[in-house]
Simulated scan of single mutants.
Amino acid sequence: MGDDTAKFVSDFGAMVRLAQSTQPTSDRGRELVDTMAAHLGAQPSSLPLVVEEVPVHRLVDADIVLASLVG
């Protein structure tokens, strides 16, 4: 890695750390977990996880179905 690239990476890292330091912090996302628990009536970590594999060529169809469910 050249000197210019190393300086860029260092400066970019410093910029990212500065941007992150200005963001509000929470205790590992507790606000989201608490909100989800209130909505679901149970702790999210106690609920089963459902995963559906969608082949790449069917992503457009999945997008259409999800849009119709939300709309």
Results as ranks from 00 to 15, higher is better:
A19Q: 10
V60R: 14
L47W: 01
R17Q: 13
G71K: 13
R30I: 12
R30C: 09
T35K: 13
D27I: 07
D4N: 11
R28E: 13
L66K: 09
R58Y: 09
E53V: 08
T22A: 10
V9E: 13
P24W: 03
V54T: 13
L59K: 06
H39R: 12
M15P: 01
L49C: 02
D27Y: 05
V16D: 02
A67I: 00
G41C: 03
P55Q: 04
L32V: 15
R17E: 12
P55C: 02
M1D: 12
A19G: 05
L47M: 13
S21H: 09
F8R: 13
S68I: 00
D4E: 14
D11R: 10
E53L: 08
E53D: 09
S21A: 15
D3G: 07
D3N: 08
A62S: 05
T5E: 13
S46Y: 01
G13S: 10
P48C: 00
D27W: 04
A42R: 08
E53C: 03
R28V: 06
D61K: 06
H57I: 07
K7Y: 05
V9W: 14
T5G: 03
G2S: 15
S10N: 11
F12Q: 04
A67N: 11
V70W: 08
D11K: 07
S68D: 12
M15L: 14
Q20V: 07
G71R: 14
Q43N: 13
S10M: 08
G29S: 03
T22L: 09
R30G: 07
V54Q: 08
P55K: 08
L40F: 15
A67M: 03
M1P: 10
F8V: 10
A67F: 02
T5S: 06
L47I: 01
S26N: 14
V33S: 07
T5H: 11
G29I: 07
Q23F: 06
V65I: 14
M1Y: 11
L18Y: 06
A19W: 06
L69D: 06
A6H: 06
R28W: 11
D61Y: 04
P48S: 00
E53P: 04
I64P: 01
P48V: 00
V65E: 15
P55T: 01
A38P: 00
M1K: 14
D3W: 07
R28D: 14
V33N: 01
D34H: 01
F8Y: 15
L59N: 04
Q43F: 02
P48E: 00
P24I: 05
A14V: 08
K7G: 01
L32Q: 10
L32G: 04
D34W: 00
F8H: 09
F8G: 03
Q43V: 02
G29T: 07
V54F: 02
D63C: 13
D61Q: 13
V65K: 15
V60F: 04
V56A: 12
S45E: 15
Q20G: 12
A6Q: 11
G41P: 02
S46N: 02
V16E: 05
A38R: 09
V70C: 08
D34R: 08
M1R: 12
L47E: 00
F8N: 05
E52S: 06
L32K: 11
A14R: 11
T5I: 12
V70P: 00
G71N: 15
